[in-house]
C-alpha cells in the first residue's frame, strides 16, 4: 500500500505545537475533519477512541515517532494524516523520548487488512533515517507529499 494513497494532503500539519498527547491527537483529527474526511459530529468520538487505544500502550514507538490510530465507522477507507512537531510532544513513548513525527490513522472496523497494510507501509519507511530526516525538514504539505511519493517509488 502506497503512503500517498491514504495520507490526506489537506490534513497534513507541518508546524504542530501541542502541550500534550491529547492536544496533538485532537489537532490531527480536526485537520482530517476539516479536510472533509468525516462529519464534525464524529470528531470528539474519534479523539476519545484514539485516546482509549493509547491506554493499551503508547503508540509512541521510539525514534521520535508516534502512530496513534483507531478503527471508526465514520470512514469507509483507511485515512491518515501526518504532523511534524519541531519542538516535540510528550507522548509517554516506549523509549521515554518526545515525538517529532506523528502518523495518525483511522480505518474502517471491517477492514483489518487495510489497517495492517497501512501500518506496514508506514513502519517500512520510518525505518529509513533519510525518510525521517527529510520529513522533519518538510515545510509544507506539498513537500511532505512529494517525499511520500519518492518513498513509495523507492527513490530515497
Amino acid at each position: 500500500m502506497k503512503l500517498a494513497e491514504f495520507v490526506i494532503e489537506d490534513a497534513i500539519i507541518t508546524d504542530l505545537t501541542a502541550n500534550s498527547k491529547e492536544e496533538a491527537i485532537r489537532a490531527m483529527v480536526q485537520s482530517l475533519c476539516s479536510a472533509g474526511r468525516f462529519a464534525t459530529e464524529n470528531e470528539d468520538n474519534i479523539v476519545a477512541a484514539i485516546m482509549k487505544r493509547e491506554e493499551l500502550g503508547s503508540t509512541g514507538i521510539g525514534r521520535g515517532i508516534a502512530v496513534p490510530h483507531t478503527k471508526h465507522p465514520s470512514v469507509d477507507s483507511l485515512v491518515a494524516t501526518i504532523a511534524i512537531a519541531k519542538e516535540g510532544v510528550e507522548f509517554q513513548s516506549l523509549d521515554g523520548e518526545d515525538v517529532y513525527i506523528l502518523f495518525l490513522l483511522i480505518s474502517p472496523p471491517d477492514r483489518p487488512g487495510d489497517h495492517l497494510r497501512g501500518l506496514e507501509s508506514i513502519s517500512r519507511h520510518l525505518k529509513n533515517d533519510d525518510f525521517c530526516s527529510f520529513l522533519r525538514q518538510s515545510k509544507t504539505a506539498t513537500d511532505v507529499m512529494e517525499l511520500l511519493r519518492e518513498a513509495d517509488e523507492d527513490r530515497l
Partner: peptide, 9 residues
C-alpha cells in the same frame, strides 16, 4: 524492533 515487527503484516 517494533518497526520491523509492524512490517510483518
Amino acid at each position: 524492533s517494533i518497526f520491523d515487527l509492524l512490517t510483518l503484516r
